[in-house]
Amino acid sequence: MMTMTTVITGIAFVAVHLVLAYFVFRYSGRQKAEHVEDNPRLERTLLLITSLLIAIMLVPGLFAYSQVIAKPSDRLVVEVLGEQWRWNYRFPGEDGIFGRTDVRLITSDNVFGIDPADPTGADDIVIVGGPLYLPVNQPVLLQFRSKDVLHNFWVPEFRVKIDAVPGTVTESWFTPTREGTYQAACAEYCGVAHYVMTSEIHVVDAAEFEQWLAALPTVAQAQE
């Protein structure tokens, strides 16, 4: 998509500028301008060509978009919490269910505001400030929340971007296909330290990921 748009617009840019430059030099300093009748046919032709090119970009774009927003079925769910100014992550733990949260319960020891009364929260795993490990070739569904203002989780290589909006949960997904170290940066202005809001992300093989996750304390363990 990006390539095609770049090619079409690139050609249009060069073409228009060539024409512009040619006209400017060819018709400068002449004694008298020639009389040119308005030419509705020409205008219609140009209109048609332009519309066609636009359609060529738009239609595949919309198909690509439908793929961007279609959620994968076999997926690893990770919750991402934006806060001024760091990223926090949460895994649902063994039961596969995130414990209920409430912004009012947030403290420095409970950055997600997990409700202690909800038993499903006890085995959740919380990572404050990162780094986040993800298994390679495994579709990942990220669920975003924010405790304060808008943030946006931006990893250029994953090519997805969505705001973390306080008061609601937003989602995006991707499949990391190459092992390595990546970085998430914040791409929605969130106050004076917006530019330091980065977090490391490691894409590793499945075994290493399991190992890493198993070594992390659950919420219950951390409280002891």
Binding site: Y27, R30, A33
Partner: peptide, 9 residues
């Protein structure tokens, strides 16, 4: 562009 065309710039 067509205004410039054949004009006397």
């Amino acid at each position: 562009l067509l205004t410039l065309w054949k004009g006397s710039i």
